[in-house]
């Protein structure tokens, strides 16, 4: 469980997160909201790139904000970025291995097995020895997910993991994301504008608007909420 208490982030005069208080249950959770609602800022706080003005984040009993940024991966935090960040110059295997060797203490022993398992999980075994530069958008997005699940992650933050992918590939990715809690044993927080992806992956969803929690609960109920429809979609029709 991730317990967020009274989290505020200000950039100059702009209030990006405004006393956000929320409890994410285990499993796959959605985090949605209009542009500028503070979703990525929340991820950046968890990653340690943004220092909040106030508040606490306790994840699985660990005070996350007290850890140096790079040590959070070793604790079990993983994330992906809106613009994919697969390392162009390395092979697919080395991309995943880099995360493994820097986020676990187990050294070389279990490395190959762990990386191969992660690549198999996302279906990239065939291209393991190819350089990322030679690959397309789909593979790059899937590499990011493989990087997120390798090792023993506890909490995975996915920031629009399907951005730029066609529907069929988004659906495939959705199936993979949905199976992360069970197969990898990590809690997932998924930020995406694609409601069908969020619905497909997440049993539970929270809605942010102007840095405040607008609603949270089972995904189907949240998406039917009138306030959510008004704030998020501007209409009463769920696309």
């Amino acid at each position: 469980m991730i317990d967020v208490e009274d989290l505020s982030v200000h950039f100059g005069g702009v209030v990006s997160l405004d006393q956000m208080t929320i409890q994410f249950p285990e499993g796959a959770c959605g985090l949605i909201g209009p542009n500028g609602a503070g979703k990525t800022t929340f991820f950046n706080v968890l990653s340690g790139f943004v220092t909040p003005r106030s508040g606490r984040v306790v994840a699985m009993g660990q005070d996350l904000l007290s850890m140096p940024d790079y040590k959070r991966a070793r604790w079990g935090l993983r994330r992906t970025f809106q613009t994919e960040q697969a390392i162009e110059k390395l092979t697919v295997f080395d991309n995943v291995a880099t995360v493994y060797e820097h986020s676990t203490r187990s050294g070389k022993a279990g490395r190959s097995a762990a990386v191969e398992a992660a690549l198999e999980f996302v279906g990239l075994t065939d291209v393991a020895q190819q350089t990322v530069r030679a690959l397309g958008a789909k593979e790059r997005r899937f590499i990011e997910v493989a990087r997120a699940v390798v090792g023993s992650p506890k909490l995975i933050l996915l920031d629009e993991p399907a951005a730029g992918l066609p529907d069929a590939e988004t659906a495939l990715l959705g199936g993979i994301i949905r199976s992360i809690p069970e197969r990898v044993g990590a809690t997932v927080i998924l930020v995406d504008h694609d409601m069908s992806l969020v619905q497909a992956c997440c049993d539970w969803t929270a809605v942010l608007d102007f840095g405040r929690l607008l609603a949270s609960g089972p995904t189907a109920e949240v998406l039917r909420d009138r306030n959510v429809m008004r704030a998020y979609l501007g209409t009463e029709e769920v696309a």
């Binding site: 990653s47 940024d69 790079y70 970025f81 110059k89 995360v99």
Partner: peptide, 11 residues
Amino acid sequence: QSEAAALAAGI
């Protein structure tokens, strides 16, 4: 490639 992504990877 990206310092932010490197930090997130535990580097």
